[in-house]
Write a protein that binds this DNA or RNA. Structure first.
Lengths: 335, 335
DNA sequence: AGTTGTTTTGTTATCGATTACAGTAATTAC
DNA sequence: GTAATTACTGTAATCGATAACAAAACAACT
C-alpha cells in the first residue's frame, strides 16, 4: 500500500505537508507543491477515503432505501437523487430492501455506524417500532414519494395522490363511465388511502355508485394486475373502467383483458399511475399519471443535504405537481 | 457520539475487552460479557464501520458499474450479485455510469482509495487507456455480461451471444423467413460482433442472402427501436423478420409497426434479446432470448469474492446457457 | 505453599489520514 | 541591523476502532 508516509519520505517532507498539498494547495509554496506532486505521481498515491472519513467524521455518502430495484419508476427517482448528490459531492449507496423490514433496518443502521451521513427512503416502512423511532430522530432522513403517518416528523417530498386520483376519475367520468373498478398495490400505505378517497370523492360528487367488491389486488406487480383483472372479469357485472394503482398493474390488466378476447379501450378502459417509460409504447398506449419522479428525487436529495449540513428547514413537506397523460387505453364507455 | 471508550468506562473495562466482547464473544467470561452488553445497550453503541475498516483494511464492499439503472435486465443481474454478496457479507455499491467514461474511472478508483474491495462491471468500457489498464491489473475485478477484448485478463461471466443469435436465426428460418433485418444497440462491443456473426453464419449455411443495408440502429433504447423500424420501413424491400438486439429495441420496433398499421407477426416478425419482464406481457408477447441474468450476477459475485480472498481461479471465463422463448411476436413468413 | 500452565483482561502500538500547536524561515517595519 | 510580523513546515495528538504483547487472575499440579 502506498500511504501518505511513503509519499512524505519520497518527497522529503512531513506527512502534514503532503496532506496540505492535496487538500489546501494554497498553504504551501510552489516549490514544495511540485516536490510533493511528483512524489504522489511516482508512488501512484491516492488518499485513503476510509482514513479521511474517520478523521473528518463525514463520509459524504447517503443511503437510499429502495423497495424494488427493478421498478423503473423508482429508478427515475434515483436518477434525480444521484444528480443532486453528485452536484453536492455525495455518493449514493443504493439498498434494495425487497420490502423486508430486516433489510431496511440493517441498511438504515449504516448511518449509525458511520457508514453514511443520511438516509432517503422511497417507501414508508421505516421506522417500524419504538426502538427504531428513537434512532430515526437522530438520523438525517428524508422520505420521497410516500407521505408518512402524521406523528413522525422528518421531511417528505411527495405527490398529491388524492388530487391525482381525482384527475383520473374525472377523466373517466367525462367519458361516461359509471362502472368503476380498482386494482390496488400495497394496501397498508398512505398512498393507498389517498388514492381511494380521491376516487370516492369524485364518484360521490357525481352520484355514481361504487361497489366495494370492485376493489381487488395487493401488490405493485404485473402478476397482480393479471390476477386482479381475472377476478374482476369473473364478477357478474363487468366494470367499464379499471383504475390501476401503478403502470405494472395496468400492463398486467391489459394483458389479461386481451387474453380473454376483449379490447382496450372499446370494452374496458384501463388507466395507471407512474408513467413508466414502456407505458407509452404499449398496445394501446396507457393513460396514466405522470409523476415528476426525477424532480422528486432531486428535491429529496437537496433537502437531505441541508439537513446533514444543519441548514434549518423552511417546511417539512413538499407536494409536487402531477400530469394526467391521456393516451389510448381509455375511451368512451361502451355500455 | 458514543464510542468504544465511553462504553468501556460505563462497563468498567478496557476498550479491548469491549471490542472482544462484540467480535469474539468466546474470549470473555459470561460476567464481563453481561456487563459490557449492558453498557452497550445503555449507550446505544454501535461500532464505527469506518474505524473498523481502516484498521482491518477491508471494507467488505464491492462496486458495481452499471451503464443504465433503468434497464431492468441489468437490475436482474444486480439482483443476483446482491444475493451472493449478502451471503458472503459484502455490501454492494451501485454506480450508474451513464456510459460516461469519466464517471466510470471515478467510480473504479473507489477501489484504489480503500472505499471498496473489488469491482464488477456490467459493460465493457473500463479500462480505457494505458494508465487505467495498469490500475486494472491491481484491482480485483470481474466483468459480467460482456466479453472483453482478448488482451485484458480478468474473469468474465457472459452469455454465448454467437450461439444465441444463431438460435434466433434458426427459429426465424424455420418459419420460412428470408428477408432479414437487424436493429442493433451499442456498436463498438463484442456482443455486437458475436450476434451479427452468429446471424451471418446461419444465413450463409441456409443460402439466404443478407442485405447489409438492413442493419440499422445505434443504442439500446425504445426510441432507437422506433427510429430503426421507421428507417427499415422506408426501404423499398420490406423485411419479414426483424432481429432486435434487446427487448427495449423490440418494443419500440413493434410500436412503430403498429403505428404504421401493420401487424406483428402477420406482416413482420419481431424478436429480441434479454427477456425483460414486460416482454412477456406485450401485445403480442415477444419472442426473445432469455439470458440467465440473475445467475450471471451470482456467479460474477462469487468469482469476485474468490479473487478478493486470494482464492486461485480455476478458469477465467464462464459461458452460461441461454434459452429461446418462442412467443407470439414471431410467426410464419407472409411473403 | 509454590510452581506451572491456562484464561482472561489491560496496556499500548497501529491503521492512514487530519489538524492544533509549535517552530523555523522569510518578509516587512523602524 | 534588529525587532515584529507573516508564511510556511514539522511535531505530535487525534479520530475510533483492532490486536500484539504484557500482566493479572485463576486452576491444577507436585
Amino acid at each position: 500500500m502506498t500511504n501518505i508516509k511513503k509519499v512524505s519520505e519520497l518527497a522529503g517532507v512531513s506527512t502534514a505537508t503532503v496532506s496540505r498539498t492535496l487538500k489546501m494547495p494554497d498553504m504551501v509554496t510552489a516549490r514544495t507543491k511540485e516536490k510533493v506532486m511528483k512524489a504522489v505521481r511516482e508512488a501512484g498515491y491516492r488518499p485513503s477515503w476510509l482514513a479521511t472519513s474517520v478523521k473528518t467524521g463525514r463520509t459524504n455518502t447517503i443511503v437510499v432505501l429502495v423497495p424494488n430495484l427493478i421498478n423503473p419508476f423508482f429508478m427515475r427517482i434515483i436518477g434525480g437523487i444521484e444528480q443532486a448528490a453528485q452536484e453536492r459531492g455525495f455518493t449514493v449507496l443504493l439498498c434494495d430492501t425487497q420490502g423486508e423490514s430486516k433489510r431496511e433496518s440493517d441498511y438504515a443502521s449504516m448511518v449509525l455506524t458511520n457508514r453514511a451521513d443520511g438516509l432517503i427512503q422511497l417507501d414508508h416502512s421505516f421506522p417500524f417500532n419504538e426502538d427504531d423511532a428513537k434512532l430515526a430522530e437522530t438520523i438525517p432522513m428524508v422520505s420521497v414519494c410516500e407521505r408518512i403517518h402524521s406523528d413522525k416528523r422528518y421531511p417528505v417530498v411527495a405527490l398529491d395522490n388524492y388530487a391525482a386520483s381525482r384527475a383520473l376519475a374525472h377523466h373517466l367520468v367525462s367519458y361516461g363511465h359509471t362502472k368503476f373498478a380498482v386494482i390496488v398495490g400495497q394496501v397498508v400505505s398512505q398512498i393507498h388511502k389517498d388514492r381511494l378517497s380521491g376516487l370516492r370523492s369524485v364518484l360521490a360528487e357525481e352520484n355514481i355508485e361504487f361497489d366495494e367488491d370492485m376493489i381487488v389486488g395487493q401488490s405493485y406487480s404485473i402478476e397482480n394486475g393479471i390476477e386482479g383483472m381475472r377476478q374482476l372479469l369473473e364478477k357478474p357485472n363487468r366494470p367499464s373502467a379499471v383504475i390501476c394503482f401503478n403502470d405494472d398493474i395496468a400492463i398486467g390488466a391489459m394483458h389479461e383483458i386481451h387474453r380473454q378476447g376483449l379490447r382496450v379501450p372499446e370494452d374496458i378502459s384501463v388507466v395507471g399511475f407512474d408513467n413508466v417509460k414502456v407505458s407509452a409504447f404499449m398496445n394501446p398506449p396507457l393513460t396514466t399519471i405522470d409523476q415528476p419522479a426525477y424532480e422528486m428525487g432531486r428535491r429529496g436529495m437537496e433537502i437531505l443535504s441541508d439537513v446533514i449540513n444543519g441548514v434549518p428547514l423552511t417546511r417539512s413537506s413538499e407536494m409536487l405537481p402531477f400530469q394526467l397523460l391521456e393516451r389510448e387505453s381509455s375511451g368512451p364507455a361502451s355500455i
